[in-house]
Design a protein around this nucleic acid. Sequence first.
DNA 1: TAGATAGCATAGATATTAGCTATGAATTGC
DNA 2: GCAATTCATAGCTAATATCTATGCTATCTA
Lengths: 291, 291
Amino acid sequence: MEIHQLRYFLAVAETASFTRAAKFCHVSQPSLSIQLAKLEAELGGALLERGRKGARLTQRGERFKPRASEVLSQLELARQELGDLDGLKAGRVGLGCLPTTGAFVLPPLLKAYRQAYPGVQVVLREDSSPGLRQALLDGEVDLAIVDEAGLGVGIGSAPLLVEPLLLALPSKHRLAKRSSVRFGELAAEAWVLMKPGHGFRVIVNRLFADLGMVPKVVFESDEIATVQALIAAGMGISLVPRMVKRSGLAYARIAPVQPTRSLALAWRSGAALSAAATALKAICIAQGGKP
Amino acid sequence: MEIHQLRYFLAVAETASFTRAAKFCHVSQPSLSIQLAKLEAELGGALLERGRKGARLTQRGERFKPRASEVLSQLELARQELGDLDGLKAGRVGLGCLPTTGAFVLPPLLKAYRQAYPGVQVVLREDSSPGLRQALLDGEVDLAIVDEAGLGVGIGSAPLLVEPLLLALPSKHRLAKRSSVRFGELAAEAWVLMKPGHGFRVIVNRLFADLGMVPKVVFESDEIATVQALIAAGMGISLVPRMVKRSGLAYARIAPVQPTRSLALAWRSGAALSAAATALKAICIAQGGKP
DNA sequence: TAGATAGCATAGATATTAGCTATGAATTGC
DNA sequence: GCAATTCATAGCTAATATCTATGCTATCTA
């Protein structure tokens, strides 16, 4: 059973004539006759009744017609849908981001994207960098905004932004008035940090390791908001990305070498990005993550 | 776009591997690769993402898959339905009959048919012989039980039964006690007949014509029941087929040559009878219309 | 690190087949 | 009776689906 046979069959059903159907299908009448004979042979019986002045459907033909019609409709619909997908009139793109960044970088990105491609659905996923990395590899998201911990083998990336990590202090802290602090001055401080595995916990660990020290960690959380709340309550100090600055805390730069974290847009290396994902990638890179 | 391409595509979607899909489809892996490349080219973009350890669907592939699946389902369903039709597990047959015969010949026929093929729907149509002839030619019914007036060019037929026409008389009629009557004795009688066009009105006309006479027609009707009711009321006499004999009237044979009407099973000459119609035809001929 | 394995793509040969033109057979209309 | 219509058949050609053999790359293993 071939698709062109279905097309020929429906043309005959429509025109009640092999000759007219052949013209309609832009093939010769013998070709059409032969193909229909094959179709009938494969289906085990006549679909058409040939007469002196044309052809009419047999009962089997009447029964077969809606199926053949449905097949061609589905194929047409498939083309249509794929066209919509490519034309960004439809589709879906999965975007991952870090909980500490979502609230800051996503709104302008998504606003621009939604305006440009209102038909595309964006599915968000907030997770840690390793979690996002896995989600990329599993194809659960198409793109993700991650820090260094989200990269690695199998992941492609483009830099989005580099932002300084600031020392976050209770406003009454002895260093609260300082605009910059050397890291060595912090050896004895109590630290409130993100739990291990989070991207910039890694950065803090590295900073201490470089100094041959171990931080005195008094609290750990998964939420940057919690960390800052604990600091505001005077439980300790921390390093936080500049984008989460809020009132009620004091922030100081680290000197002389300011630590930073880099955010990058990441995707699975081998992945054939969908049109929707490609467009989102372009917007991300164009905006550079800067609101 | 070809059906085997859809099959290959779904196999890859299922097995996540070109190699396994090729085995499943009983083709070589290169053949499958090439066909899928063609499918993708025709649809304007990749459907599958080739990786080191197999293949996975792209977004376009995910979108396309249900359509491809539906197409194959429809084709399978079509085969199934045609098989049911041929196996007489489904189907429809149109059967026509004369109003004067339906009540007498149909019940046993339809009972036997329904019992043998409960899945087949029988659509009845009662009409005059010329009307049934047209219905046959138009394909509105597959078979019809008609008298001579229903035959002609383009109609095939098989004899079903020959039945005598009896003289129907009011029970107080002067001839009511006679078992047989010569037609010549009826020249002066008042006649209640079926309207012109009805099959056995033609027969009565012919009988009179043979004698060089014209009947004195006092009433005409389309319904044999009406004719008999008028006769019972003493309005005249008539010739009726034996199968409509009822109480309240007297019936006499015509002698010496008993007039008859023949019923036949008819179909359109060129028609490819459906399995359902062929089976019904067989039952009709086997029973010969005799209850 | 070299070799083996797995997975898909490419190349060239072959066999099937869809399509064409020409023609035939049967019927209808003037 | 001739012309026109309609579908089927025959023979040829070109397209193509498939095959085997091979290449390429990445992964696994000794």
